[in-house]
Design a protein around this nucleic acid. Structure first.
Lengths: 210, 210
DNA sequence: TTGACAAGTGCACATAAGTTCACTATATTT
DNA sequence: AAATATAGTGAACTTATGTGCACTTGTCAA
């Protein structure tokens, strides 16, 4: 249990929460002061310092608008009761953010204990069987962490020439390949390919049988 | 549909999303520039302006750290989800009901939409790699529906001579086999084997990477 | 009385950060 | 060849914003 707050501190914490909810960024000391008729920012500062000390906030010193609410429910993934809700993405097209509203076909809730990664996650139905030897089949659901870069050996979702594809990302001898895990498919050399773009890294696979 | 983004704009939008996710407050132009090796904040500014113009962001002019992602999924609907809680079973031993309390190591909640079957379900960590060609690897979590009989071709959890095993159930020429899906393993003939017992049918597989 | 907190004021200060401008470079399109 | 869009540089400018200090007020307990 965290330390008890004074009434004033509570009010201010509440205001910061509301402000962040409203604006997606935290208020400045002067904005807080204005709301509570505190003329001096130093007065505000001491409240903030107290809230930091008691474990409700963090701030970056000498940085503006850097108040961060601790343990706040991120609205990207709803993590109430250890569930993580991930959007189900229909298609991946070049030039649009994967998580754009238009792409999202639904949501799936997963138990947080099943997911080892955090961040921008989404689910994607697998098309094609280029990864069968990696145990990923057509129709499987893959959980993808949205990211632009990845490590050698990661299984990724990528865009190549406006086509989205699921492959293993391999760097070898200064070249970059997308390796299928199916003898019927050929590796794709994407070294210096300008129409190649990483969409995200596969962090989990789910398959259900009839 | 919002306007298409250039690759650079997409990268930057992605970075902002990640940054907000990480810090709960948006980055400054210089922080963005630093990440992408853009020396001049003006270069960054024009990207931000473009993203605002295309409807992906809003900013407060002359205010620091005031980038706000538009249409963040605040409307995550946590309410209307159906969860199914399945027990995680540690080991399957003969003579004990699989779902006996002693065997249960925890619970996992799954979105009902992921499960096509109802009934007595449980989760089981896969040991051994006899089913790799069916895309089930060691360490995977299989969701099993507890049942005593099954259909030809089902992947099942069975007890043979007090050992629990994961195999495909195949009837052929009046005989019953447990078929591994790995060339290194031999089929097991369980025809008339009194120490053979079906525990349940695998209805789903879940695997997380790393 | 003393002292300790909590809360606030007013000012000066340093600087982090957004804005603007002129200029360059590369594609792609007309 | 000219025009347009994207991308970046570097410097100058402005100001929003956090920090520090000295001082005041009120409350509550020892």
């Amino acid at each position: 249990m965290r330390k008890k707050l004074t009434e004033r501190q509570l009010e201010i914490l509440q205001f910061i929460e509301d402000f962040v909810e409203e604006n997606n960024f935290p208020p400045t000391y002067r904005e807080i002061g204005k709301k509570f008729n505190i003329a001096s920012t130093f007065g505000v500062k001491r409240h903030i310092d107290a809230l930091v000390k008691k474990g409700y906030l963090t701030t970056e010193s000498n940085s503006f608008r850097s108040i961060s609410l601790k343990d706040r429910k991120k609205n990207v993934n709803c993590e109430e009761n250890n569930y993580v809700s991930v959007p189900l993405v229909g298609k991946v097209a070049a030039g649009y953010p994967v998580l754009a509203e238009e792409n999202i076909e639904g949501n799936i809730s997963l138990d947080a204990s099943l997911l080892k990664s955090k961040g921008n996650l989404f689910g994607l139905k697998v098309q094609g069987d280029s990864m069968i030897e990696a145990g990923i089949f057509e129709g499987d659901l893959v959980i993808v962490k949205s990211q632009k870069i990845c490590q050698n050996g990661d299984i990724i979702v990528a865009l190549v020439e406006d086509e989205s594809t699921l492959k293993r990302y391999v760097k070898k001898n200064g070249k970059t390949f997308l390796m299928p895990e199916n003898p019927d498919f050929e590796p794709i050399d994407v070294t210096n390919n300008k129409n190649f773009q990483i969409v995200g890294k596969v962090i989990a696979v789910y398959r259900s049988f009839n």
